[in-house]
Design a protein around this nucleic acid. Structure first.
Length: 152
DNA sequence: AACGTACACTTAT
DNA sequence: ATAAGTGTACGTT
């Protein structure tokens, strides 16, 4: 099936997505837009609705590599919660540093929710900008609140 | 095929 | 604050 691409807004940023009917192939944040549609779930998520993009599929989840194992563990971190690099490392049997490396190379952020992985004593990194990570986490926190209280 | 090095970390000085 | 430990991937030989 053919790969299509598109972008949507998230705050000051654009989210570019390359995807087909089975999985997201690539996702990245950019300061410029791109013609075309993104998967509906991602559009809703970026609009602030409490939907979880990790229910989408990413090609990067289905390999036998260490990174792929890490990505599968990261996918299980649910909306509105966080885990540390060290926790993920322990789960898959590697070191925290490696988890950081896997996050830095994550081909499909949001779908593999690397923004929910934080350092033991700080927020950790995010490219292209840690502001995005902060915004995503703040939004999810608010979203869960909304879900529980049914308002605001 | 081996080697060096770069890391979105962590823990102990 | 700083240093040592860490495992994987990736670029150079």
């Amino acid at each position: 099936m053919e790969i299509v691409s598109g972008s949507c807004r998230f705050g000051l940023w654009y989210v570019h997505v390359w995807w087909n009917d089975t999985a997201v192939q690539r996702l990245r944040f950019s300061t410029t837009g791109l013609a075309g549609e993104v998967p509906p779930l991602i559009r809703k998520y970026c609009a602030g609705q409490p939907v979880d993009c990790s229910t989408l599929d990413s090609f990067a989840l289905h390999e036998e590599s260490m990174y792929s194992r890490i990505y599968r563990a990261v996918r299980d971190v649910t909306y509105g919660t966080t885990a540390t690099y060290g926790e993920i490392a322990e789960k898959v049997g590697t070191s925290p540093r490696v988890v950081g490396q896997a996050m830095a190379r994550n081909p499909t952020p949001l779908v593999i929710p690397c923004h929910r992985i934080v350092a033991a004593h700080g927020i950790g990194g995010f490219s292209p900008s840690v502001e995005i990570k902060e915004a995503l986490l703040a939004m999810e926190k608010k979203g869960v609140h909304k879900l529980l209280l049914g308002q605001n």
